[in-house]
Design a protein around this nucleic acid. Sequence first.
DNA 1: ACAAAATGTAAAATATATTTGACATAATGT
DNA 2: ACATTATGTCAAATATATTTTACATTTTGT
Lengths: 67, 67
Amino acid sequence: MKNLNLKAARAAKDMSQDDLAKLCGVSRQTINAIEKGDYNPTIKLCRSICRALGKGLDELFWEDDEE
Amino acid sequence: MKNLNLKAARAAKDMSQDDLAKLCGVSRQTINAIEKGDYNPTIKLCRSICRALGKGLDELFWEDDEE
DNA sequence: ACAAAATGTAAAATATATTTGACATAATGT
DNA sequence: ACATTATGTCAAATATATTTTACATTTTGT
């Protein structure tokens, strides 16, 4: 499922996917894929994204519906 | 660096690395490596570990000192 | 002291995250 | 309408997470 929390947090900082990608040192496609969903990034990248957006892991990457 | 939060949370539930590994559907070595540190698990596995131990992502997998 | 369980660690194989390059479409500003 | 930026998506290549097998050491219980 899509990661709308991430999309919203990025929008709140007026950052493009490319901006965020550069801040995190990954490719734009990776950020796009994470927002799109059905992707499984590493915790290190998640932390990097959280730092760039000033959010916590639970705020951006928690999911309840995943058995 | 070692993940002592994880080690402590597991100990608090009186679980062996193998117990936790089975609950998360991964190998014992993977859990061992994560506790040992210098490992970079996927967010999906982190969530699985958090559910098994009743903790949040920020409690078990946040790191301040990672530029 | 002994046995059993738990942990630490390593090398080779496999699965999968991420990159690169590329192209198409949607959105935005002038 | 036009140019520019942002987004969605794909296939092939590369990097790395995870498994499997295996063995050594430590810890725990009796």
